[in-house]
Structure formats: C-alpha cells, structure tokens
Design a protein around this nucleic acid. Structure first.
Length: 795
DNA sequence: TCCGAGCCACTTTTT
DNA sequence: GTGGCTCGGA
C-alpha cells in the first residue's frame, strides 16, 4: 500500500518501458516489500500464474468456484502495484453492474484509495457510453443523447410498426425488438442485415423497419442498449485516430465472463486490444447461459485462434462445494458436446449427496422447501444462507406466497427491478423532460399521468404536427395552444402542464435536485393520485418514490443521476437482514449459498420448452449449463425437486421429471419421493417415481389428466390431497403452521371476525375466520387467503 | 376523455 | 393467473 501511494504522485506519462521492466523485476523479488506482494498471497499456483501472466493474450478458464473474481482483482492489483499501469490505464469490463461493483470493492481492499482511479472499470455498456459521450457527433448524435431502456424502445417500435401499417398483432413490437437486438448483437447495420433475416419480419419489412427505427432514434437524439456497443465499434472502425487514442490509454484489458460476450463485444474488444495485445479474458464455457441474448460461446472456444500465442490457464480447483455436489454437476455437464473440458476437483471430500425429491404438485414443493428452510433455521442456520433458484420468474410466486404465509423473510434477487417500476419510470419521465424539452418519449409517457384531460386524440394531433414540423412534442404542444386546434379540457390541461414544466425547469436551477423531484411529484398531482388510489400497491409505490428521492441525493446533479439510472438499471441493495434468497438461475451466476434449492426440474419447465422449440439442441446444451450453474451454487447442500403436477397458465397439467434428473450421476445423488426412499441409478426418473404408485405419475398419465376436474379442484380447495399420496403431507403442514402460531403467540395485533384489514401483497379484505394468530381473510382483489395476523394491519 | 367488462396471448432468461 | 388490448357506454 505504502509503495503504492508514493507511486501515485508520479506523472503517468513518465512511465517508460524501462520503468516497467524494473518494476517487473521488483515484483518478482522474493524480498520485495511485503505490502506490494500482498495481492499474491494465498493464491494457488494456477491462480498465481494467471495473475502474473500480464503480457500478451491470456485466456483463464475458470470453472465454477475456482476463485475467478479473486484472480481478476489480484491481477488488477498486480498490474498497478508492479507499476505496469496506472489505474486509469486499465480497462476492465464485466457483464453486469453487480460484478463491476464487486470488482471495484475487492480491488479497493487490495490496493486502497487507488481503486478510485479505476475509471474504466464497468460493464461493456457503461464503458461504451463513456466513450460514446465523447465522440457522439461521429455517429450523428449529440453528446447529450438519452439511452432508451426496453420500455422506451418497445413503445417506439410500436409507433414504427403502426406507422408502416403492419398488423401489430401478427408482428409484435416485442418480436421486432428481439430481431433488432440480435442484429445489433452482431453489429449489423440495417443495410447489412441478410435478406432472409429481414424477411423474418412482416414479409421482408424487417430491415426497412430497423432503418426507420434508427432514423427515429437519431431524431430523438437517443440510442438503445445495443447501439452503445455498435456505435463504438463504428467509431473505432471509421476513425483510426480515435481508436489510437484508446490504444494509448488502455495498456491492459481485463474481461470477466468472456463466454457471455456477443459478436459486437468481441469486435469492440478486438479493436481495442489490437495494439498492445494485453488482453486477459476470464470465463467458463460451461457457464455460458446467455446465448439467447447473442452471447457466442464460440468467442471463448476460438480465443486461441483469434489471438495467436495466447496463454491458456485452467483453474480447476474448486473452493466452494463438497465432493458430491461437484461430482453431480460435473457428471451432468459431460452430456454436453461443445466444451473445452475441465476437471474440477476439491479437497472437501464427502458431504451431503445431492438430494432429488419428487413431490405431488407445486404447492407441495413450496411446502417442502419452506419446511426445509425452517428446519435449517431451527438447527442454527440463517435464512440468508439458503437460496431458491428457479428457471423462470413466474415460478417464484409459489414460494413467495408460502413464505408470506409462514412469515419467513425472503428477498427476490433480480426481481421486479426498482428502476423498471411504473411509478419510478413516471417520475423519471418528468425529470427527463426537465433535463431536455425534446425528450418526446418522456413527454408521451407522462403528458396524461396523472390524468389531466390530454387523451390519445390530443397526443396524436400533437404528434402528427410535430413530426411534420420536425420539432419536439413539447414545443409543438405550445404552438398548438396558440391556435384553435385544441379545445375544452384538453386545452386547459395541456396549458397547465406546459406551464408547470416551465416553472419546474426554472426551479431546477435554484433548488437541489432531490427537492425538485419532490416538488414535481407533489405539484403534478402524482402523489395525490397514488394517495387517492386504494389499491394494494399504492402505498408501496409512494414508498418507492421516497426511496427514489433518497437515491437521487447521492448524485451531484440531476444529469448525473439520470445518466446513472439509464445505464445501471439496478440499485445498490441495502442488505436488510436475514432473508432467504429467491432468484432465477441466470441471476444466481457468480453467487453461492450453503443451502440451495433447485425446484421445478420438469420437462418443458426446465429445460424450457420455449427454448427448445426455438433453438433445439443448442438450447438444450445451454439449459444444461444452466442446470450446472444451479448445482454449483451450493456449498453444502443442493436439493433438486420436481412435481408430478403443475399449474401452468392457470391450468393443472401433469408433468414429467426433467431429463437432467436422469443425467445426474447416481453415486452422488440421493433420491427421495414423498412416499419413501429409493436407490438412484438405472431407468428413468419417471419410471422410478412412477413405481411408487402413490406419487401419482400414472394417475396423471391419462389424457386430459383429471387435475383440472371439479373433484380435483374441490379437493385442492378443501386442502385435502386428491389421492392417498397427498394425505401424508397434510399433517406436516398443519404442524408447521401451528408451530408458527405458537411462535407469534397472542400477538399485539388481534382481529375479530368481520374486521377490515390491509395486507401489503393482497390489499384490503375482511376477516372471515380467526384461529389463534391465523386469520382467514376474504381479500377484495385476491379472494380468500389464510394469513398470519402480524402481516395485516387494521384498515 | 374515461372506465369497466370481456377477450386474448402469454412467461424464459438481461445490459 | 396476469396483464394488455378493444369496445361500448357515461
């Protein structure tokens, strides 16, 4: 640290090859300042090699739990401490904001305040935006361009489609967005889109619409996520002088999760690394799970060819999981064909086998897992040590409901994200309109929110005129007010709105931006609108807006704040105590927990039917990698489960265990059905479980499986199992609940039958039945539910 | 212009 | 089971 601080004072330009060599020599001296080598302490030989191979292209194949992040941060520290580069001469790109944050934090603990100098550490999109702001004019944008999020993009595309007289039902904006995205992922401009692909939308209009969309973006002085990368690539290609500037700046390049890079990102990196060739990429082909988003596993498979002479270092020692977990995951992934191949090993022998359990239905699965969590907790574990990882977010609901019922605290990772909530986006639209009058998308979003009489027809009138005159909506609205074009409530509302905007814009120069936000939300009537709304969520929406104002105060200016939210669609989550984590498998990558639940391992759910339909074998391998990622998140215990029946689209369907269940190596798995134990190995899981008749797979095998039948529904509603198999489960639940009731005891909140109550999730309702602390409430919106009294307030 | 009723298709996964 | 959209009446 010491050596480092004194070094910071030096002029960065004085760094010469000579100094660099001497620094290198110093770093290798065993007797060198211990502080300087601190970042190498405790690394295993392979990790150390990866850290010290600073020059030339390097590919670090880092299996799950092999200390990948550690290597990256140590390498960063090493480059700086050995004086090969100043912090601002290193480009470190990650895939997610979370990873970037973690890297910055960990680098901070290693190299101290110098980590502040790591200005070029961030996601591909963040770094691209920084670069693009400086050269925006080279691609026809102003440096103040806005970055559209998916919602903006979607609305814009809808307009484009409608303007082209294409049936939006047949050809959805969503689909066009995905096509355009996939083109941008490959850095294809509208004129480069292959004919057959252009034909995949509205009989050949694909490329044309893409071009129209890009034109609209230019008029709006905006770009979408994909553009950030593509524009940079365009600039680097067409302006060698600009590229040279960045060659000079970035002496070393580090890339995390290289297996997730798409073609545009690959080109971006190749252009930037072309001169010094000090490119170090870290990744794991077995954890490539973003193919649907354009990631090319090929990038990592081909690295040696792309960068001749590349060093390849394999990190295979796993520090995370026990032997059985690792072996189960490894066994599973061997079914994949296209892989570089690694053999993970660990010194943690034994441990629990991977538990595979079959249950009757999704509810039973939620009960089982919730019970496990409570057992874990009773035995001294913490909630936060457990995670439930699902394939798709709709699967989360069952667990959330169960946890709410039992009072188990939980947190959804990557759930409905803060900045994507409607109220937050509305607030942002107001602020964006203050920042720039020409933000048409923002204008459209909030012109009539809250209602001020400016309906669709009025907006359409303004839009037509504004497009013809090529001036922003807000300005055209002002022009139209001076004419007789508009009348009645529309005119009055619009006039008031424009006056408000002007006033707020003036105020924005006088008062701090968080205060401005509060002012706008009050004066626009937005908060009043929410207060008047008695829906179950309006209270939490108001809370979110408060949180927004809070978040804003952490930035110097409104502009800085907006720039941040546009790029970092994620908010730093304050760790609020001890709660079970519920996450998608995708969002779980890079994380770990002692206890990991992997529910929903059923055909068509996981592997996902949709993925298989679209991409076939390739998707299957990706789904399998997802399974691999899931299992390798566990340190002590991985518990896979599947149900025989599941409600999909609101209908009961009988489902089969996932093929992945059968691919698990039997020696490392302990399989359990609700009715008893059986030995794993041989035969399909479906057969094995079916053999335990009561589990009921055979029952559901018949057509139109009786589970949507009235009888089944009645059985479900009455809480009784429909077959003998469900019966043994029931007592368990009752036990679980009474235990909880005992815990919450004669609580502070008592409700009588007939009392009106409010619940955060379910809204308002009336108590229909009281049983200790357990209430049955008939909710106005969501029907009858059983809840614990501490979760409702008197209303 | 607004709002409710009824119809629809839909659910991967994210910067 | 949800949310988005259309249609008809106030």
């Amino acid at each position: 640290m010491f050596a480092f601080r004194s070094f910071r004072a030096r002029n960065p330009d004085s760094m010469s090859t000579e100094l660099s060599i001497s620094a290198r020599a110093m770093a290798r001296l065993p007797g060198a300042d211990a502080g300087e080598l601190a970042h190498l302490v405790g690394l295993n030989p392979e990790q150390r090699a990866a850290v010290e191979a600073t020059e030339g292209p390097v590919l670090v194949l880092a299996g799950a739990g092999t200390g990948k992040t550690r290597v990256l941060t140590s390498r960063l520290a090493h480059l700086i401490a050995s004086r090969r580069a100043q912090p601002w001469q290193i480009l470190s790109v990650t895939f997610t904001n979370k990873a970037a944050r973690e890297m910055r934090e960990r680098a901070g603990t290693m190299i101290g305040p110098a980590a502040q100098g790591l200005q070029w550490l961030g996601t591909f999109h963040l770094v691209s935006a920084l670069i693009l702001r400086r050269h925006a004019e080279l691609v026809g944008l102003k440096s103040t361009f806005t970055i559209l999020d998916m919602d903006d993009q979607h609305r814009l595309l809808k307009q484009v489609i409608a303007a082209a007289n294409i049936d939006e039902k047949r050809w959805t904006a969503r689909y066009l967005a995905s096509l355009i995205d996939s083109w941008k992922n490959r850095a294809l401009s509208p004129d480069k889109v292959a004919l057959d692909e252009a034909y995949s939308f509205a009989n050949g209009k694909g490329a044309e619409l893409y071009a129209t969309y890009q034109g609209r973006l230019r008029v709006l002085n905006a770009c979408d996520f994909g553009d950030l990368l593509v524009h940079c690539v365009t600039i680097f290609r067409n302006h060698p002088d600009v590229l040279a500037e960045y060659h000079e700046r970035f002496r070393y390049i580090l890339v995390d999760e290289y297996q997730d890079t798409n073609i545009a990102q690959y080109l971006w990196l190749r252009l930037l690394a072309q001169k010094h060739r000090n490119l170090c990429v870290v990744g794991d082909d077995d954890q490539s799970i973003y193919g649907w988003r354009g990631a090319e596993v090929d990038n990592i498979l081909r690295f040696e060819n792309d960068f001749p002479g590349a060093k390849i270092i394999r990190l295979e020692r796993n520090y995370r999981s026990t032997e059985h977990i690792l072996a189960a995951a490894s066994g599973l992934i061997t079914a994949n064909r296209d892989r570089l191949g690694k053999t993970l090993w660990t010194e943690e022998s034994g441990g629990q086998k991977v538990l595979v359990r079959g249950v009757w239905d999704g509810d039973a699965e939620a009960r089982l897992i919730a019970d496990d969590v409570e057992t874990w907790r009773r035995q001294g574990g913490r909630y936060a040590q457990a995670a439930i990882l699902v394939r798709a977010s709709w699967q989360m609901r069952a667990f959330e409901e169960r946890f709410i019922l039992l009072g188990i605290p939980y947190k959804v990772i990557g759930g409905p994200r803060f900045f994507e909530r409607a109220e937050i986006r509305d607030a942002h639209a107001y602020l964006r309109l203050i920042r720039s009058e020409s933000d048409d998308l923002a204008f459209e979003r909030i012109a009539n929110t809250p209602k001020r009489g400016i309906g669709d027809t009025t907006i359409a009138k303004i839009a037509t005129a504004s497009r013809a005159a090529e001036i922003p909506l807000a300005r055209m609205a002002a022009t139209l007010l001076a004419t007789d074009e508009l009348k009645g409530p529309a005119k009055a509302g619009l006039k008031q709105f424009l006056m408000d905007l002007d006033r707020w814009r003036l105020r924005s120069r006088e008062i701090p931006h968080p205060e401005l936000a509060e002012l706008i939300l009050e004066e626009s009537g937005y908060t009043d609108m929410l207060r008047a709304d008695k829906g179950p969520q309006s209270a939490s929406k108001l809370e979110n807006l408060k949180e927004l104002v809070q978040a804003m105060s952490q930035f110097d200016s409104l502009a800085a704040y907006l720039e941040h939210v546009e790029l970092v669609m994620d908010v730093e989550r304050h760790e609020d105590g001890d709660s079970v984590q519920i996450s998608t498998l995708h969002a779980s990558k890079g994380l770990e927990w002692p206890l990991v639940f992997l529910p929903g391992w059923e055909e068509e759910v996981f592997p996902s039917k949709r993925a298989l339909d679209e991409k076939g074998q390739k998707a299957l391998e990706e789904e399998r990698r997802l399974a691999y990622v899931g299992v390798t998140r566990a340190r002590e215990s991985a518990r896979i489960s599947f149900a025989a029946n599941r409600q999909i689209f609101g209908r009961w369907q009988s489902v089969l265990p996932s093929r992945f269940v059968d691919e698990l190596p039997p020696n490392h798995v302990e399989a359990v059905s609700e009715t008893g134990y059986f030995a794993g190995g041989g035969g399909s899981a479906a057969e094995k479980f079916a053999a335990y008749g009561p589990l009921g797979l055979d029952v559901g095998a018949g057509f139109g499986s009786g589970y949507s039948s009235p009888g089944w529904k009645r059985a479900q509603a009455s809480g009784m199992g429909a077959s003998s198999s469900a019966a043994p489960i029931k007592p368990k639940i009752i036990e679980g609940e009474s235990r909880l009731i005992g815990k919450s005891g004669p609580g502070d909140a008592h409700f009588a039958k007939g009392a009106r109550v409010f619940h955060d999730k379910f809204g308002y309702g009336r108590v229909t039945h009281v049983e200790g602390a357990k209430l049955t409430v008939d909710f106005e919106k969501s029907g009858e539910k059983r809840v614990i009294d501490t979760f409702v307030k008197a209303a």
